[in-house]
Write a protein that binds this DNA or RNA. Structure first.
Lengths: 162, 162
DNA sequence: CACAATTAAGTTGTGTGCAATTGAATGGTG
DNA sequence: CACCATTCAATTGCACACAACTTAATTGTG
């Protein structure tokens, strides 16, 4: 069963559609469930990290979430406006901004405790199924990240004179 | 091994992180590869559908892609500006707008033929692995969509008087 | 035929996501 | 110590994604 280029365009469609669709479907369920908490999905991800670390510089937050300041800055401003976090420049390194939970932010955790179970139920997967899927996705992400670094055919080494 | 709520918040983090990360990693690889074609990832998805159907009303396109006019209208305008498609109101139903490939749009398909193989390589998965992942994702999407419809606790039946 | 309900696109507003740039602060190096 | 490269946030610009609303056309019903 060889796969001529023409068929590949169809098969490929299935793969990217599937991931794209799953991602947005997940987002949709989170949106519904998180509405009670007044959080968006990405904001919830930030809160999850903060609930585990209490206080973090924006940089570290970005590393945990794979997001840069371009995304985090406005998002954190909204969380601050909502009274869930405060941001203040670090005393030791004035370049760094530390994000800290307010008491309100800490308190929200209690109401968030029910979220994971509702999500898990919504997936229709059991614990093992979720674990397996997560493993596949992580493997995929690792491979894709490595490939993304290797791909850029338009960005050569860039030394050799200059 | 019971899982108290406190642990769930951690486990959950893993799941949504994984999917979120995988989705964006995929997007990143597509971005790099599609740059040659001058397409974004969502635009590529639209083109894939059009390469199979040649001409479709916006509504049908949205059903294939699970996207609404709010997303498609500006996206299609950009594809039209790029000379890949034309949009014209249907003669039979003036509400409907039909999207059709231009000869340039048809021609682009030839250059897109190499994309799926490069993507497949980037995933590091073989055909079976991809198939399995796709199956899991589709299953997940189906469950999530069903759950999203069932969830809304804030949108009761809404008949019973009124 | 008249009119309400429905349907299709488009528009508006909000919130990411990311590349590219800016500006301030820090850390070497000579 | 002076200067340059690096680092960290923030900002800007562009492109989704989606809810809510608007407008125009069509359909169903009386």
């Amino acid at each position: 069963m060889n796969t001529p280029d023409d068929d590949w365009l169809r098969l490929d469609q299935q793969i990217c559609f599937s991931l794209h669709a799953a991602s947005r479907a997940f987002n949709g369920v989170y949106r519904v469930i998180l509405k009670d908490l007044g959080l968006t999905y990405p904001q919830y991800l930030v809160m999850l990290v903060l609930w585990e670390h209490d206080e973090l510089p924006v940089k570290k937050l970005g590393e945990h979430l794979r997001l840069d300041s371009g995304t985090l800055s406005p998002l954190l401003k909204r969380l601050e406006a909502a009274g869930l976090v405060v941001r203040e420049r670090s005393a030791r390194d004035e370049r760094s901004v530390v994000v800290r939970l307010t008491s309100e932010g800490v308190a929200l955790r209690a109401r968030a405790l029910q979220v994971p179970r509702r999500i898990a139920t919504s997936t229709g997967f059991d614990a093992d199924g979720i674990r397996a899927l997560r493993a596949s996705l992580d493997e995929l992400t690792t491979a894709l990240d490595a490939a993304a670094l290797a791909q850029p055919p338009a960005a050569p080494p860039a030394d050799e004179r200059s």
